[in-house]
Nucleic acid binder design. Sequence first.
DNA 1: CCCACGACCTGTGGGC
DNA 2: TGCCCACAGGTCGTGG
Length: 287
Amino acid sequence: MPELPEVETVRGGLAPVLEGHRLTHVEARRPDLRFPLPLNFVQTLTGATIVSLRRRAKYLLAQTDREDTLVMHLGMSGRFEIARPEGAVRPGQFHYAPDPDPKHAHIVFETEAGARVTYYDPRRFGYMGLVNTATLDLHPWFAGLGPEPLSDDFDAARLKTAFKDRKQGPKTLLLDQRIVAGLGNIYVCEALHRARISPFKAAGRISLPRLKRLVTDIREVLGEAIAAGGSTLKDYAQADGALGYFQHRFRVYDREGTPCSNPGCSGVIARKVQAGRSTFYCPVCQT
DNA sequence: CCCACGACCTGTGGGC
DNA sequence: TGCCCACAGGTCGTGG
């Protein structure tokens, strides 16, 4: 599933075709994704103009010129594809290439300009909803979210407070969206490896200088991934259909048995299940 | 409050 | 080739 950098990449891919564009056709091919779609989903969005497309944590926020913001979460396997018309059947009506994966094409948006944005999600862990824009921050999806890791609100002092007296490893706590919003399994593993911090060490016992290093490394790895256009795994493609390449730069994720890349370390990357998720790490230099 | 675990849903890849 | 199991980027609810 897309983590922060992938969602940011999707945002960047969708923004040119959605921002400032009016939705002329909205289709929900099933009544639910992970949760039921609002009953007024199609009605509310049809004819609305998307005034901005932003990201908060792993959510995409498409603010409309009506009262609501369309909130989209990609879950594990959600992705968007943009189709451009191959020709106009007649003015305002367009022709598109056949959908390569109609079985998982759950939501379709078409804009006045002729772009077709299709949401695919085989596992249906993703979800969409309509949230009143004026009170968006109070909505349960957003009210408890921690700071954006790339913002100034996120720093070592804040992590120190969040980690205080906690016995769980930093791996588990960094996945908690209330502590910091937008990290997922891949980038937590990558950041802890860069910072040479053990995923299993009691979080409350990590020193402030090491947390400072961790904050820097979180920002660094996210920044690199965003710059690379987001990572692409099996069932994820960039919003415009092109592929990202950051997955080739993972240093620990899915690299069990390969040599540790940290300078001067002769360790071998290991995998352990921690709180039900795979943790990849170097048992030698991550302490 | 903290923490571990199962559930949600579907697809894929590896081993036999 | 076929079958079965393990596993997958996230989040939520339950129960100790």
